[in-house]
Design a protein around this nucleic acid. Structure first.
Lengths: 139, 139
DNA sequence: TTTCGTGCAAAAGCTTTGCATTAGC
DNA sequence: GCTAATGCAAAGCTTTTGCACGAAA
């Protein structure tokens, strides 16, 4: 399961599993709504009143370095995180309410090969986002 | 040509074409390297010593509202802008030197339709970025 | 016991805003 | 002349950093 995988990876890199880190990992492993740093922190402060924003940021930096989290950068919505599927996959984003969902996987292998051929780049990863209105916001 | 198109659009929206705006538009219309606000400003200060960063930001906000510019959000590289092709198109980005190029157009029509069917979203636009090493940075 | 992590507050970027001055139209 | 745009400085956000204290192994 995701939580165990994350913990395993951090231990392999000689990181300590503190209660704070465990809590952040747990939220990331169990959230499908692509939370922000702010929302992770808000959720945790209820149970760990001293939990600081800096610790959430530091844990996320750590997970990014370990490749255990996917960062989605948005200048409007702020950065959002996907701890369940830390590999590139498409997202569908509502420009009205900020909802982000994962549609079924799309295979971009072939397109990626074509891009490498055409540009000479050695492509390592990609990002594919669709923007529009979710069913609720189409009123 | 792009510059004239931008000017036309701003005039239609009753915006004044000041020397400062004209200068920003000119840079955006003629740059293929997807400049940042900072680099646009740096280029212009040489000729217009009083040109302020705020004015560049305000002009870009205006162009975004008018749909005459494409904003590419990156938390590492900072936001970058494409004034030549203000519609969605793929980008190939070097993670080493920050170079951004436009490969030939890819048709995502069919994929977009599939996404709409699957998710119920009304998709208006998209973003597709490939990340890797450009030929120069592969040493 | 030694090293690493936490949490506070301060700093750092980047972008936006308020407001008096200046300049299009 | 009326109204909008400029440019400065200040404010706002998000994210990072420094450092003393506390906790993990």
């Amino acid at each position: 399961m995701r939580l165990e995988q994350m913990i395993e990876r951090l231990k392999e890199s000689d990181c300590r599993i503190t209660p704070q880190r465990y809590a952040v990992l747990k939220v990331l492993a169990n959230s499908s709504e692509h939370p922000s740093v702010e929302s992770i922190h808000a959720k945790l402060v209820e149970h760990y009143p001293t939990m600081s924003l800096a610790t959430v940021y530091k844990t996320i930096t750590l997970l990014k370095r370990e490749g255990e989290i996917l960062e989605l950068e948005f200048s409007d919505l702020g950065n959002r995180y996907d701890g369940r599927k830390p590999y590139p996959h498409p997202h569908v984003i509502c420009t009205e309410c900020g909802k982000i969902i994962d549609p079924s996987h799309l295979d971009l292998e072939e397109i990626t090969s074509k891009m490498m051929e055409e540009t000479g780049f050695k492509i390592m990863t990609h990002r594919l986002d669709f923007y529009g209105l979710c069913p609720n916001c189409q009123g």
